[in-house]
Amino acid sequence: MNIKFDIEGGNFSSAGLASSEVKRLLKQLNIDIKTIKRLVVAMYEAEVNIVAHAYQGEADVEINEDHIKVVFTDHGPGIDDIDLAMQKGYSTASEQVREMGFGAGMGLPNIKSHADKLNITSEVGKGTRVEIICYLNA
């Protein structure tokens, strides 16, 4: 099953809408609680990153019997050095974003530790694609 969510850059109050809805759906599927949590946390971080760092984007959620795949694509500045961005504590967040409680540089590391697979590709000046996969416990 596929569901698509739009994510608006700069709108922090909307961050979390996609992960909340996916959470509701996964609960209906009776998927084990730990897996839901892992995916929801990873999704939330990716959503916030689009809101905080890009202009506009979307999340495409694919629910399968054995795994869930979410692809976030955005129009934004892109990431120049992905390895650097992956490091704990690395952040280019603006003062404004930090004041809102984000910008600890923990988002991407958090996604990595919560999801089973994380794949980032990016083109500077164009945008970023973040692919997250969580396997449903067999």
Partner: peptide, 20 residues
Amino acid sequence: SMMKLDNDLSIALRKMRQVQ
């Protein structure tokens, strides 16, 4: 949990598509 559509994942998934 009152939320679950079915105990069986593949049935639940099918039901979820139907809901959608």
